[in-house]
């Protein structure tokens, strides 16, 4: 039975991020014939707490086909030494003889998987929207969303990261009741050449754009930084994250961390609501793979209407408050 390791990312509250479940779905392979090992890093979960009671963790993961939960520990500072973490993951991948290793193409996943692939000298497909672990192929964007490429990896271990929300999570029919918990102490040490020395919090804890299931984005038409409040209110009732176009960022209405597009973030939510955004190619480069795109614009000729799924001709300062109210 082929084995797939999946690196699980935890949210701050010690919960499993929902975006992991799409990765687990891909990890099972075509006929769910892969045995799945969920990898957790010491520090992202409390090892002692997990040892004492791992029922909830096991149940959540088992619903998506996980058979073994491996918590990776080392004697060293796993959280602050990226190379140490990469060597530990690589060591686990060898120890359990994974045929494939998957994870999220999040900010930390992108960095960690590239380190692991370089350490193991295996090819890697990044930010995939489809992964076939049995066929060793993956589909991913080339040329900023203008084309999809299918790549074939000639490898011992297939390494791939998955674009958050790109693969729909599907639970399995018969859930295993005897998921095994393994504590793996990786025999690795750090080079000491890269170390995280500080983390600067981004003010209020906001939902990360690239992982949000719904995104509402403001363009130049938002006119002032304080008007983003209107989008935030709507986002709160929708469970959405708020983004911005480059025009809105350049005008100082929003920070660059909120920018969607070719020079900003690439997102793939279930619903993308573009408010007062014209629909430039560079903006579409970052959100084209969203499932449903809704455009709201006063100009019936705005290019966005020729490239989105649903359109509303209207003033965002009327439509958005009405939408927020109706959703409440």
């Amino acid at each position: 039975m082929p084995r797939t390791g999946v690196l699980i990312e935890m949210a701050d509250e010690g919960k499993i991020k929902n975006t992991n479940y799409g990765v687990l779905t891909a990890a099972r392979g075509k006929d769910s014939n892969n045995e799945i090992y969920a990898l957790l890093i010491d520090g992202s979960v409390e090892v002692d707490a997990v040892k004492a009671d791992s029922t909830a963790l096991k149940n959540d993961l088992a619903a998506y086909g996980v058979q073994k939960v491996v918590v990776i520990t080392v004697s060293g500072d796993l959280q602050n030494c990226p190379d140490l973490q990469a060597s530990a993951i690589a060591a686990a991948a060898k120890e359990y003889e994974f045929n494939s290793l998957l994870g999220l193409a999040s900010a930390s996943g992108r960095d960690m998987f590239a380190r692991v692939a370089a350490t193991l000298d295996e090819p890697m497909a990044s930010d995939c929207i489809l992964v076939d672990v049995d066929g060793r192929t993956a589909v991913k964007s080339h040329f900023s969303g203008k084309t999809f490429a299918t790549v074939q990896l000639d490898c011992t271990m297939m390494i791939a990261t998955v674009r958050p929300n790109a693969i729909d999570p599907v639970k399995i029919d018969t859930v295993s009741s005897d998921v095994e918990l393994i504590i793996f102490n990786a025999p690795v040490s750090d080079s000491g050449k890269v170390k995280r020395v500080d983390v600067k919090k981004g003010g209020v804890a906001k939902l990360e754009l690239t992982e949000a299931p719904i995104i509402i984005t403001g363009g130049r038409a938002i006119k002032a930084a304080e008007n983003f409040r209107m989008l935030e209110e709507c986002a709160e009732v929708l469970g959405a994250a708020v983004g911005a176009s480059r025009a809105a960022v350049d005008a100082g209405y929003a920070p660059h961390s909120m920018q969607v597009g070719q020079t900003g973030k690439t997102v793939s939510p279930k619903v993308y609501i573009a408010c007062g955004i014209s629909g430039a190619v560079q903006h579409f480069a970052g959100m084209k793979t969203s499932k449903i795109i809704v455009g709201i614009n006063t100009d019936k000729e705005a290019p966005i209407f020729s490239k989105c799924d649903y359109g509303i001709i209207g003033d965002i300062f009327e439509v958005i408050p009405a939408l927020t109210k109706a959703l409440k």
Partner: peptide, 14 residues
């Protein structure tokens, strides 16, 4: 580097 949600990590590298 930015790590998501506006959070930034500071890395020392030789």
């Amino acid at each position: 580097r930015e790590t998501g949600g506006g959070e930034r990590e500071v890395l020392e590298i030789s």
